[in-house]
Design a protein around this nucleic acid. Structure first.
Lengths: 338, 338
DNA sequence: TTGTACGCGTTATCAT
DNA sequence: ATGATAACGCGTACAA
């Protein structure tokens, strides 16, 4: 019960210092005693006490730098709230957080922000899919920084782990929901943010995959809105005019409000069933008006909180993340449980 | 940044012991210095370091006793998993957990289990709604124990807080979902566990309340199944025979599998839309067979984990729960995102 | 009324 | 190669 280094030291007839050296591999310790210590620690199931670790680590004053393309995107509001709440909780351990934000998806701009993260011990980032960004992340990891991707991933980089939603499952779930809402018969119009965003592609892929089991569902058209409300409005309107047979709308990205404004241009009896992502205020408003029937919620608060928690565990407790992908399931929400 | 008792002591020109006495009110300290210390602590925003607290508190070896009417009810499997995972996490702080389970809802039996919790520092319990249980809980609180109700509440007791679902909102959400699935037209048969269980009453209440806004929905009949599979089968079957106009089933309690077996007695074209609670294995099986269309998930794992976390924070870190009701929203799940 | 000293488990820096 | 020792912040028992 409650194995400590002290106890191991006593059992092995050595000092705590020696045990520490062995267990942390920072030794110059004879192989004989080292082996013995390792064996005893193993057998007794030694686990370092996080409280003691945190206490002893207070001099480090670890810095966490957060980089998000969040400006003008309400989705990130709750991500940031989760990050801040967690950071406040960990402040007492000397942990501090710096938030760097940008608007849009310009790699150059993100590289500038990454420059500012040079002195951070950990970097939490929603990365743009760009070779230079990936290289910079790899360099950070090589320099000993702890790197977590949030909301968006860069799977072929060397980042330690990813926190975010399972995009493909989001598409699958959306399709199943649409099937239930329409009794399996619908002609779907899809509004994409951009094909260059891997998460959006994955969602559409999941949707199409699930659609193979729904013979009554078909996709009439796919438009891109670049996450912009006005582009969203115009292209959605054009799509609905060109395809009067559309009975359902699948909104994969931002620009939900713009698409809904387009829907409102049509008479109520011609309006499609609409499914979207995220419960940002303007989308909730559209739910109240009956334009959007359901959303898929991506747990933004939990994404932020979890990412910061991982940084804390690593930096303060010295605990590695126990898995590489922290995937949050999409949650189906109606107006009644937003 | 990072204000400690030591720092406050220096600033006030007293010893750390004095600061401790003032901040914990276990003083005999001159009102003058006390006021000064309080002022400085306030201004600097002193917060005790949880790590140090946990470290110093290790001698306590706090015991948490968990009492659940979980036998034969698969819903609790994940609650228990959440409890155990959290307990394992906190084991290093000397915290231990004892799980006491029972079958059914006999108050006498639960009182016997409560007897066994006499030496615990905290009690986590899914209580039966009974005067003697409430009295015992109040006695525990009076004796200084930390008491949390889990999954079921006893609002008029003196328990410190409640962790569980918002039952009424569960009913409201279920009704809205049914409305969406049936385009607003359904004759509903309700299968209740028991009217003596407050959570079940609240769910039905929420459903009826939401139904006022859905003129196309009506309740044809309500039966009770006492959470028993066979009773559930027979009464559901009888209900479906007596009311051939039923097009939807709202399963409020356990006994989902029994009710589904009753549904399967009828030809596919006569089968109703079915909504149930919890994703226990037998219910998921019914989803795969297409008998159950959707479930409302009560986050059993998180309920258990959160309850244990509250006990840990209180017992090891001396931190009080920051709210009285930890309500988890019901989550809508289709087969695709269970 | 107030100050001092020790212990909790770990890390890090001294000495030997 | 190994041991001793001083932090880290808090609780507490004991001394003044």
């Amino acid at each position: 019960m409650m194995v400590t280094m002290k106890k191991i030291a006593e059992l092995c007839g050595v000092s705590r210092g020696t045990v520490d050296r062995v267990l942390h591999g920072r030794g110059r310790v004879s192989e004989e005693t080292a082996a013995n210590i390792r064996r005893v620690a193993q057998e007794l199931g030694y686990e370092p006490n996080p409280a003691a670790k945190a206490l002893a680590a207070r001099k480090h004053q670890p810095k966490v730098c957060v980089i998000l393309p969040s400006e003008g995107n309400a989705f990130f509001d709750d991500v940031i709230r989760g990050l801040r709440t967690a950071a406040a909780e960990y402040q007492i351990y000397g942990l501090s957080m710096e938030l760097l934000t940008m608007k849009g998806y310009d790699p150059e701009r993100m590289l500038t922000l990454l420059d500012k993260a040079a002195d951070a011990d950990a970097v939490l980032i929603d990365p743009i899919d760009d070779a230079r960004i990936r290289e910079r992340i790899d360099a950070f990891v090589a320099a000993g920084k702890f790197v977590v991707t949030v909301n968006g991933d860069l799977p072929d980089s060397r980042r330690h782990c990813y926190v975010g939603s399972d995009y493909e499952n989001g598409g699958v779930t959306a399709c199943a929901l649409l099937e239930a809402f329409t009794h399996g018969h619908a002609v779907v119009g899809v509004v994409l943010g951009s094909r260059s965003i891997s998460g959006h592609r994955a969602r559409l892929g999941g949707f199409e995959q699930r659609m193979e089991r729904s013979p009554g569902l078909s996709i009439a058209a796919v438009v891109e809105n670049d996450d912009d409300e006005f582009t969203s409005f115009e292209r959605t309107k054009a799509m609905l005019q060109t395809h009067p047979d559309i009975t359902a709308l699948f909104l994969i990205a931002g620009g939900v409000y713009g698409a809904c404004r387009a829907v409102k241009e049509f008479a109520p009896e011609r309006r499609p069933t609409v499914i979207a992502f995220d419960s940002v205020p303007s989308t909730v408003e559209m739910m109240k008006e009956g334009i959007v029937q359901a959303i898929l919620y991506q747990h933004p608060y939990r994404q932020g909180h979890r990412a910061m928690e991982l940084a804390f565990d690593k930096l303060v407790n010295g605990r590695e993340p126990y898995k590489e992908m922290y995937l949050l399931n999409h949650e189906i929400r109606l107006l009644e449980n937003v």
